[in-house]
């Protein structure tokens, strides 16, 4: 295991932010800490880095108890949401920082820094200053800087959170490819479930300072441990007292076994998919279907249809409230 977190508790004042958190991160994996803001995921990452001290519990990095080690001695790479670029240093000196601190020979530093700048596609920007870079470039520089010291683990705190949607998507794919190349154990924090599903091998869902579920993206999406995880990982709707994914619902104009009667209240066309809004016994629900399917059924607001969860899909029974 690259990282083992055991029974970590942490409070800010009287507010608990981490409650008995235990996670294992496998060597060479790419793990996402996913959860709503205020769920404690950034704090957990900072506890792993040594930037915060846990009140109780232990953190092991590569088999060594690092709980009381300063961040300086943990050999972790940390990437901040707002880059934390050293503004007075050039891109080259930013990346070289950790190596200069370690007093490596000049030639070695130059070689390593240029390699890393090539890896993050910034080799032509070596002499620029952070203020002359775009957000995406700054974040790639920060990543190269963190990788320069060959860290045991790479920790990224909402790395793409400050970037606009387009750059975000590009960097996401790029991070995945980079990880396949470099293989350093990586943990990143995000509140974007799509980002977590697309990039990570393992997702840790955190809410209210506690781990809700750990698993591969497919596991947490298809077999959510509880309604919270199911809601957080993707769209849900409620049919017959169960939570169902709206794309896992069969809809037909003829009565079917186990189906519920519903009235179509609205039809919204969103490009290739169509959102059919329904009313079932006074409750609102919706179903996601393809455009072709919707056209074949020729649904109109006011129609009565029969809906039931796909036999193969998983739904979560909601206990009566």
């Amino acid at each position: 295991m690259a990282i083992e977190v055991r029974d970590v508790n942490k409070s800010f004042g009287t507010t608990p932010v981490l409650r008995d958190v235990s996670i294992d991160v496998e060597s060479g994996s790419l793990t996402a800490l996913l959860g709503p803001s205020g769920g404690g995921k950034s704090t957990l990452l900072r506890v792993i880095a040594g930037l915060e001290q846990p009140d109780t519990g232990t953190v092991m990095i590569s088999g060594v108890d690092a709980t009381r080690l300063s961040p300086q001695r943990r050999n972790v790479g940390f990437v901040f949401q707002h880059y934390a670029a050293f503004k007075h240093l050039s891109v080259f000196r930013n990346v070289a920082f950790g190596l200069e601190i370690r007093k490596r020979p000049k030639d070695e530093i130059r070689k390593r820094v240029m390699e890393l700048l090539e890896l993050v596609h910034l080799e032509k920007m070596a002499d620029r200053y952070p203020s002359q870079l775009s957000g995406g470039q700054r974040q790639r520089m920060a990543l190269a800087r963190a990788l320069a010291v060959e860290p045991e683990v790479l920790l990224l705190d909402e790395p793409f959170g400050a970037l606009d949607a387009q750059v975000r998507k590009e960097l996401r794919t790029w991070l995945r490819r980079l990880h396949d190349e470099v293989h350093v154990t990586t943990v990143f924090v995000t509140h974007d479930q799509e980002e977590a599903i697309e990039v990570a091998d393992t997702i840790v869902v955190l809410a209210n300072g506690a781990v809700e579920q750990v698993g591969s993206p497919a596991e947490v999406y298809d077999n959510p441990a509880n309604p919270f995880v199911m809601r957080f990982l993707g769209p849900v709707t409620e049919i017959g007292g169960s939570l169902v994914r709206p794309h896992d619902i069969e809809i037909s104009t003829t009565p079917t076994e186990g189906a519920t009667e519903a009235t179509v209240s609205r039809i919204v066309r969103l490009g290739f998919e169509v959102r059919v809004e329904l009313e079932i016994a006074g409750q609102e629900a919706w179903v996601q279907v393809t455009r072709g399917f919707a056209e074949r059924l020729a649904l109109q607001p006011g129609d009565t249809v029969n809906v039931r969860p796909n036999p193969g899909s998983r739904s979560l029974a909601l206990s009566a409230v």
Partner: peptide
């Protein structure tokens, strides 16, 4: 944050 980044870099 810059100081923290420097700490994590050793």
């Amino acid at each position: 944050e810059q100081e923290q980044a420097a700490h994590t870099l050793g």
